[in-house]
Design a protein around this nucleic acid. Structure first.
Lengths: 343, 343
DNA sequence: TTGTAAGCGTTATCAG
DNA sequence: CTGATAACGCTTACAA
């Protein structure tokens, strides 16, 4: 049986109140008492009961994530890392996660219920579509939430996003500056806001080229090996094929490489490729051959941060102070040579 | 502000006790009272405060899952569906999930801590390796847990597994009965128990054939498109190549199909293929061309069940009553023709 | 069948 | 700086 605050206090010859205060870092406790308490807590391996703590503090001690695997499916390698990041933060703050998995037709209800039942102190939303009804639903309630990504919404909301437009502009610009004039964007499904932003960045870069030979492709599909292969293949079959690819995810790259190989082409020699790298575990861009040039931003860090932001929001921080846009870093490795002479 | 039990009781002119009992289905409440209470609860949209409930009942209200994305937990698409299943059950029982993500070197500590701090009422383990130290650690504590899968362990433990040996025996036997004599197993990484069992089933089926021309391959690798491709390719390059494949996961099949295509071969015509299907969302075997023959068992159902079992275990059910082995169903579709004459 | 009252393990309020 | 004491919202003996 684990030790309780009461017993710990008895051992110390102090009141529960004082011990609690010492443990929670309240300023009015003397240094001496504080260290005695800390020592005893460690010695008896005391851990506060979270339920009691949460009850007393009037919060639930859990944050909610609504997810539907049938909808997200092959973004799942990303989801797992994102979730890992979230879990790191929640563990630090002794929060639990309440996952709900409504069937697609009950999604609205799930959000309403979460809000009504107050089973959670706040919600984390991800993978927003350009038009995302979830925001409207949550705006009606006043449950704190953070959106990982952005969307169109009338009311302001708290979010963490990366500068997808800028990143894909930079990536495309890199290729253009190297001399490429036939560039293909292998994008994610375009109803996701991030894909839409990426398309915009790509278009802006391409649009800035006055060269009349400039040609651009833009294909969309799931961020998987398979769609990387398919869409790259589709481009490469064109009579004047692209000399460079901009890829929505490193997850697609093996597929793109295979497609290239089928045409006797090699990334890093005959073709340039730059991909967005979410820094997921076990898919390191420098392990590819050639090492991939990327725009990088850790989705796990984002998960960590988004959970911190939610905690802040729950604590009363203003929406305006909880709107972050991270700038992915452009990392040039071996996969982006200039175009071949003959091309 | 949400309504509380006290207020609900006041509205009804009853004591908290009675209302609580009615809501929790205690037998001693009169029918009339019970229905009045149910009605009022619905009317006022009453939801009990889980922290108070858990505190009073002396449980934490959360179950733990320790996962490390860097270790490829399960392959993520599978993990997501498994997690969805777990979440369905926990939602039903008003339980939260506490994910912890220790760095690989701290794994042991994570389990010990979970046990010590009693932050969770029980733990769910998955993807056991043949030798899995986690079981030993948990055996020392007495925290309830369920293993999804099996492993070698001295003490008995509660688990849910599928009959991988039997399923892969049946799948291989199907191919043999069709006349195939050169069969390749594209297995998952062999240090996982399930992969080991599958290998055993495959071997048993192959070993039962007296025909001296019988030839078997057994390759291992991640259950991905990419490794499906690689390993299939490796087999097909052999002088007397396999006429049939047994695949650890439908996730690998697109890769296998591509490899076949590169040799001008087509699954369902020139080659037979049967794969294990975890019934994950959006990867339906009947959407392949040809529709895949499979051994099927829903990993989402397993997640659901494993959580139920954990709840039972927490409730005091005996380990012996919590050991289930499901038999995957063999479903023959179009991908398993008999071998070609010339082969 | 219903009610009273004492927990469950914390934190918050108010004195001292 | 420290300590009683009252919440927090529910369950559960024990009574009636």
């Amino acid at each position: 049986m684990a030790i309780r605050l009461k017993e710990l206090a008895q051992h110390l010859g102090l009141s529960q109140t004082t011990v609690s205060r010492a443990l929670n870092g309240y300023p009015e406790v003397s240094m001496r008492t504080r260290s005695r308490v800390a020592e005893a807590a460690a010695h008896y391996d005391y851990h506060p009961n979270s339920n009691a703590q949460n009850l007393a503090k009037g919060r639930s001690g859990s944050i909610g994530i609504v997810f539907q695997p049938e909808r997200k499916m092959l973004l799942e390698p990303l989801f797992a890392d994102y979730l890992a990041g979230v879990a790191e933060t929640t563990a630090l703050h002794d929060l639990a996660i309440t996952l709900s998995t409504p069937s697609s037709d009950r999604e609205e209800e799930a959000y309403r219920r979460a809000a009504a039942a107050l089973q959670v102190d706040g919600l984390l939303l991800s993978s927003p579509k350009v038009e995302d009804k979830r925001l409207r639903i949550l705006a009606e309630t006043n449950i704190p939430f953070i959106l990982h990504g952005r969307t169109v919404a009338s009311a302001p909301y708290a979010f963490l996003d990366i500068d997808n437009e800028g990143a894909f502009f930079a990536a495309t610009k890199l290729l253009i500056d190297l001399g490429h004039r036939r560039i293909a964007l292998l994008n994610a499904e375009i109803d996701y806001t991030f894909a839409c932003h990426r398309e915009a960045g790509f278009r802006r870069a391409v649009g800035g080229v006055s060269d009349p030979t400039m040609k651009a492709w833009s294909l969309e599909g799931q961020m998987t090996d398979e769609y990387g292969y398919r869409n790259a293949l589709a481009c490469l079959q064109a009579p004047r094929r692209p000399t460079a690819f901009v890829c929505a995810s490193t997850l697609m790259v093996p597929g793109v490489m295979r497609a290239a190989r089928e045409f006797g082409l090699q990334i890093g020699r005959d073709l340039a490729l730059i991909a967005h790298d979410d820094r997921i575990s076990q898919l390191r861009p420098d392990y590819f051959d050639p090492p991939l040039s990327t725009t990088q931003s850790s989705i796990r860090d984002a998960g960590r941060r988004v959970a911190e932001m939610l905690i802040a929001r729950i604590g009363g921080a203003a929406i305006e102070d909880l709107q972050e846009i991270w700038t992915p870093e452009l990392v040039v490795r071996g996969s982006t040579p200039p175009p071949l002479q003959k091309d």
